[in-house]
Nucleic acid binder design. Sequence first.
RNA 1: GUGGGUAUAGUUCAGUUGGUUAGAGCGCCAGAUUGUGGCUCUGGAAGUCGUGGGUUCGAAUCCCACUACUCACC
Length: 376
Amino acid sequence: MNSFKYELLHVDTSTGARLGRLHTPHGVIDTPCYMPVGTAAAVKAMTSRDMLELDAPILLANTYHLYLRPGHELVSNAGGLHRFMAWDRPILTDSGGFQVFSLGDLRKVREDGVMFQSHIDGSRHLFTPEKVMEIEEALGADIIMAFDECSPYPCDRERAQRAMDRTHRWAERCKAAHRRSDQALFGIVQGAFYEDLRLQSVKTLTDMDFPGYGIGGLSVGEPKPIMYQMLDAVAPALPAHKPRYLMGVGSPDCLIEGALRGIDMFDCVLATRVARNGTALTSRGRIVVRNAAYAADLSPLDPECDCYACRSFSRAYIRHMLNVKEITGAHLVSLHNLHFLIQLMAELRAAIANDKGAEFRAAFYDKYGGDGTGRF
RNA sequence: GUGGGUAUAGUUCAGUUGGUUAGAGCGCCAGAUUGUGGCUCUGGAAGUCGUGGGUUCGAAUCCCACUACUCACC
């Protein structure tokens, strides 16, 4: 069976943003969408029930982390990731390419794969495209990512080309090794910050005909305009009838900028990571709830938000929770931030459907602050 | 009441044979965080060294008195 399908419903006449629908074995996802990250089979500080109430359309999990702990075989024996984490909606697993990339000195990239040492106990492991496919099949997500080599920023052309070529060879091997027809395997576009390499990557991967394409190697520390420039080059070159996934992005403004450039899927740890450290994303910009300015502020995190945290609790209460290090503090801000991004995408989809993408962007910056070039 | 001990940042404590601008943890204040090696990381403010006197070129440090706290014994 192959129940994976992407439907392109509408293209915003004002910007080129796409409205779509992604069909998976575990349900339908409206795009563009933000996918919360649950690295170790849980969105940090949240339960699957919370994520359902937030109406998260799909969750991410991570191959590298689940392979090391608790092991993909255990997850498989537990009935697969969906059952293990009690989440019936779609799941996407990242291949571990990025994690291995961020291991730094603990890894050695070779042609057959990546030799690396566990960040937990120093034990040695080899990730090959075939091994990664074995793990991702055992985990059983609806969408799985090919094993790629992410290059850093900045990156000289020769190194970028080498990583990209290897990513292509590995993509081929992932495709050949992939058996489960109920999982969609996405290829990943690389090429660092060279437009011609990016276009070459798109060509090579689309010739292999994947059901969807990740855009990797962005949001690795480069200025936003450079990332947007890459998207402007890559997105139009990708096939219209396949979903595009901008990996690791992002902040509210980046989600909008990406979607208006034709991106359909995003994932990012930012919302939950900053939440745990006391920062809320709101319609009027970021607020560091932890700051003394909110000690006696009885208003909600975001006056325009209707999430559980904003309906029920004041900034003063949430700041207090964070201050005394109650788990509830991290939970409430995470809940709000996730709701904010999920809601933002729902509103953005409505705007795209009405050809008002450009207006939506302007209205967003008007309240949130910034113009898309600075931080957040 | 008698004898001993202690007194240094908001707090718990370092502080060498007396030597230049008295330090640390926690707390406080602020910043960072983009396919999570993160309850993490970076920075900042903050002290009349209990009070008063003395010795000395120089005292948180040595001496005296006082005060507070504390322990033991009456």
